[in-house]
């Protein structure tokens, strides 16, 4: 009867007593690793391993992510630096090339005893009907229509349309261009007529005249437009077989029309009263 009435209390008391005995025993005698402990540890080992593996996997993924974020940031910075350096390098390259071109242009001043205006090409028109350049100097800078335009090593064309601050240059190869020239070696005279992609055609040279491929052609100075001795081009083709009085001769201009960026406008021979007055003043 007593047991039945107090069985819960007895049960609780017994369990607490067992726990106390266990604790006291372990406190009094250092039991080390007991069998029970070993069993629990053995049972817990796979679970612990599983958790550790999971945590490690997550940690690794996180570290990789952080690493990748760092890499991305570093990559962005390096790309920025590369871009900045490339821009800088490009500037230096451009500067160097420009300096070389200007040096060549300036060498024209030593070659020809004339006054020059340097100008930058701001536009090109190399269509079927018109082959012109647009330069950034005009009337305000002292340019006048008809002035010869040169690039190293020779003639490029002449000024046609002049505005206040810009001008158009009619190229040698334009079909409307005619330049009075002579073959340097034989002093045979002719007219260099623009022929587009073929360069120029040397007109009115009789078949009996000695003209060879490679002969240098210079301005004759007979017209008032171009002074004598400006390099025009080289003879690239000679044909005396066709019918007619004159040979068919093609010229290859010295000036590279495709890559021209700066030009020199020759003012000598065009020194008009205005300029003379200015000088006298």
């Amino acid at each position: 009867m007593f047991l039945k009435n107090y069985r819960t209390v007895i049960f609780v008391g017994a369990i607490i007593a067992a726990a106390l005995i266990l604790l006291s025993y372990n406190l009094r005698y250092d039991t080390g690793t007991s069998v029970l402990k070993k069993i629990v540890m053995e049972a817990a080992e796979p679970v612990q391993k599983m958790f550790s593996a999971s945590v490690e996997a997550v940690e690794n993924a996180w570290r990789r992510y952080i690493h990748l974020v760092g890499l991305e940031e570093e990559n962005r910075k390096l790309n920025k630096t590369i871009n900045a350096l490339q821009e800088e390098l490009n500037l230096y390259k451009e500067g160097n090339l420009e300096a070389q071109r200007l040096k060549k242009l300036l060498s024209l001043q030593d070659t020809y005893p004339h006054r020059f205006f340097a100008a930058r090409v701001i536009g090109k028109e190399l269509s079927m009907i018109s082959k012109t350049l647009w330069i950034d100097k005009g009337e305000k800078d002292g340019l006048m229509s008809g002035m010869p335009v040169l690039v190293s090593p020779g003639l490029l064309g002449r000024l046609t349309d002049i505005s206040w601050h810009s001008s158009k240059v009619l190229l040698l190869v334009d079909e409307n261009s005619n330049v009075d020239v002579l073959i340097q070696r034989t002093r045979v005279q002719g007219i260099a007529h623009g022929a587009g992609s073929r360069g120029c055609v040397l007109k009115y040279v009789p078949k009996i005249q000695d003209v060879r491929v490679g002969d240098v052609v210079v301005t004759s100075g007979l017209s008032n437009i171009f002074p004598k001795g400006l390099l025009v081009g080289k003879v690239s083709y000679v044909n005396r077989v066709d019918a007619g009085l004159f040979s068919k001769i093609y010229l290859a201009p010295f000036a590279d029309l495709a890559s021209v960026e700066e030009v020199m406008v020759l003012a000598a021979g065009q020194q008009e009263p205005k300029q003379r007055e200015k000088k006298e003043e």
């Binding site: 726990a19 005995i21 604790l23 402990k37 629990v40 540890m41």
Partner: peptide
């Protein structure tokens, strides 16, 4: 279990 795995005195956490 906690006693066994935590390194505490066996019986302490049980109690």
């Amino acid at each position: 279990t906690f006693d066994c795995l935590s390194g505490a005195v066996p019986g302490s956490f049980t109690l």
